[in-house]
Write a protein that binds this DNA or RNA. Sequence first.
DNA 1: ATACTTAGTGGACAAGTGTTCACTAACAAT
DNA 2: ATTGTTAGTGAACACTTGTCCACTAAGTAT
Lengths: 247, 247
Amino acid sequence: MPVNKRAPRDGHRGAAPRAGRAATDSRAADSGRDEDPQAQRRTQAERRERTRQALLDAALLQMEAGESFDALSLRSVTRAAGVVPTAFYRHFSSMDQLGLALVDESFRTLRAMLREAREAGPAPEHIIQRSVEILVDHVRAHRPHFAFLTRAQSTGNGALRHAIRIEIRLFTSELATDLARLPVLREWTTEDLQMVAGLLVNTMTATVEAILDVPLSAPEAEAKISRVAEKQLRLVMLAVPLWRSGD
Amino acid sequence: MPVNKRAPRDGHRGAAPRAGRAATDSRAADSGRDEDPQAQRRTQAERRERTRQALLDAALLQMEAGESFDALSLRSVTRAAGVVPTAFYRHFSSMDQLGLALVDESFRTLRAMLREAREAGPAPEHIIQRSVEILVDHVRAHRPHFAFLTRAQSTGNGALRHAIRIEIRLFTSELATDLARLPVLREWTTEDLQMVAGLLVNTMTATVEAILDVPLSAPEAEAKISRVAEKQLRLVMLAVPLWRSGD
DNA sequence: ATACTTAGTGGACAAGTGTTCACTAACAAT
DNA sequence: ATTGTTAGTGAACACTTGTCCACTAAGTAT
């Protein structure tokens, strides 16, 4: 039962000329003196970006709440974003386009994570532990993005699904070339490198899904998940020196 | 674009009494002489079961075609099943109920697979190879069921999602106790056994998703996926003898 | 100060949705 | 032969959905 009837809200309304609104808003809002906080939207580009983001966030929120991507409707998204349905088209030509924008956004945060993990790199022993830590921290900090990716990965539109798969595969390849620098993996074939990288990424992915399943902030469960993930990664790396590609 | 306008088709229609239909159908269908093939539904229970199955199959088909579970509508399902929307309620009280029925059905085939794999058990060397083979064979043979499970696992209704997760966890535990019988794993803690089992199941799951992604019957791609899966499993099992649970 | 651009409005439309209701005709049991 | 039971029908309902349209007022440039 989403909010349908809302009080006359924002934006421009024929009956009530702007003066009234502007006066109320720009002063009463909150201490808007020097830096404008957020209430008075000044430039047009700024305004545009604001509602665009509102649309993206609304979609993310609904997905985090359990709906799959292609179950959400243009109207419900605009409703949650506080704009009228037709305003949607000023920003995206269809829901699918919005989906692709979300893929972009989500992978941006994912790559930020990867960068951080790489910088914390050359601590040889605790590297696994550290990586897992970074992973769960990022999932906690950007829950909606990760929820979106895992949901949309096996849902709807094909195009979305495909975009995400591609990106993950790319991600895996990067990991593979990273691994290639390790002494133990010096002379592995590329296929075998891909194979291990895939295994690691799978484990990470499963870990993310497990964390997302946990009812928000049940710290013990989360801790256990990290512990298991660590062990799994350690186990895999343990096997690496023994590997002989031959059949 | 599902069939919307169909010729007056089945069931009872006020204007055209049954006789006409039965005659056309039970003869023209296919060589229906001794054993009734499928056209003339005799007992009532038989008829009931038939359309129930038609509903389930219709839902499966639409999901295999890419839609996520909670994106499909009661009406489109009944349409594809060749019955009128209201007939749906004779079998399920809601789409969610249908979903649960599908979970049942799908896991039945999955357990059949597990049984087969267990029976082919004690060939010590090729066991991994054999397991992967069984897996991909079953996926090929029951594509819709596997597609449903992987889709519904991260989509909609929460209840469905939960049911599937539970079932998979159970599945993992079974594998863990199976593993416990192996000599190498004799004295592992249960948590560590769960950990390895989880790793193996994750790999299997990822493999299934990979296969489902492959455009139907691209045998080379499929072969490559199996090969990689085999390697990954072998790699994991390679590490097992070296494992020491200590921190 | 004037004209242009544009983010957002509000009303309308056809189409699709889930669910209710009274119905019918085949089967089942007596 | 009569009487229930029941799987499926078909029309109607109150909504929701995506998209089109003309409109408005704030912001931008001249």
